[in-house]
């Protein structure tokens, strides 16, 4: 009898693990799409923050204030339920997209995380010594050359640790999509629990999947940091990072 119960246990855990692993592409896809979107938008926000026009700067500042100051869960509900209640959205050409919970979760995450990434990039930009920009100017470099050769490579290196933290946060944030019926890892776990009433083992399986994802991402980021470290890659590093 004990053997049969244990067998049932093993079967249940294996089935649950399989169901949860099948949901990983949803979680991962949501993460990758919103990470790319948020990074591009974050870069745009930093560009806007340094713009000459005051209204452009103001909009970027307002955007960062709004999305950093409110919970992501609320933003997701706002996009999925709030915007859907508005006539122009309902009758507009993008309605099929706004009806899709996965798209709404991705959109909210993109907007939210772009604000955090913009702050990270702004910090990195501020850490580049002004003397270097002046030197580049003195060498007769144009705006694009300066950005490509002096500013961007260093920004990348300076921003990477904090940017990596944001990416790890984003992997975890994808779980909020389950609150608007997206069947990601958390969504599937909740579904299994609703049928089986086995809370602890199912949540532990889901937690294991997330730990695997965040762990792999952290390892990848650490590798990238080492690659970009001037003291390791080549001796020509000018030690300007401090």
């Amino acid at each position: 009898m004990g053997g049969a119960a244990m067998n049932a246990d093993v079967t249940f855990l294996a089935d649950t693990a399989l169901a949860i692993v099948r949901a990983v592409p949803v979680t991962l896809g949501l993460f990758v799409a919103s990470a790319i979107g948020a990074s591009l938008l974050g870069g745009g926000l930093v560009a806007a923050l340094t713009a000459g026009l005051a209204p452009v700067r103001g909009i970027a500042r307002g955007w960062i204030f709004l999305f950093r100051g409110t919970p992501l869960l609320l933003q997701i509900f706002m996009v999925y339920y709030g915007l859907a209640a508005l006539g122009p959205v309902r009758q507009g050409p993008f309605w099929p997209a706004f009806r899709d919970p996965l798209f709404c979760a991705g959109l909210a995450m993109t907007c939210c995380c772009s604000a955090y990434i913009a702050e990270v990039l702004r910090g990195a930009l501020a850490a580049i010594p002004a003397g270097q920009i002046e030197a580049a100017l003195a060498c007769g470099m144009g705006r694009v050359t300066r950005l490509r050769l002096i500013v961007l490579p260093q920004m990348l290196r300076l921003a990477l640790p904090a940017y990596g933290n944001e990416l790890v946060m984003m992997v975890k944030s994808t779980s909020l999509a389950s609150t608007i019926t997206v069947l990601d890892v958390t969504g599937v776990a909740q579904q299994v629990i609703a049928h089986s009433y086995r809370t602890l083992d199912v949540f532990c399986l889901a937690a294991g999947v997330y730990l695997g994802l965040t762990g792999a991402l952290t390892a990848l980021l650490r590798w990238a940091e080492r690659r970009l470290d001037p003291t390791v890659s080549d001796g020509a590093g000018e030690g300007a990072s401090r």
Partner: peptide, 20 residues
């Protein structure tokens, strides 16, 4: 563990797991 697992999962675990 706590920094690698979504906060939502922790809340759900405690909410559903606490009575048991």
């Amino acid at each position: 563990i706590m920094r690698g697992v979504p906060e939502l999962l922790v809340v759900l675990l405690l909410y559903f797991g606490a009575p048991g």
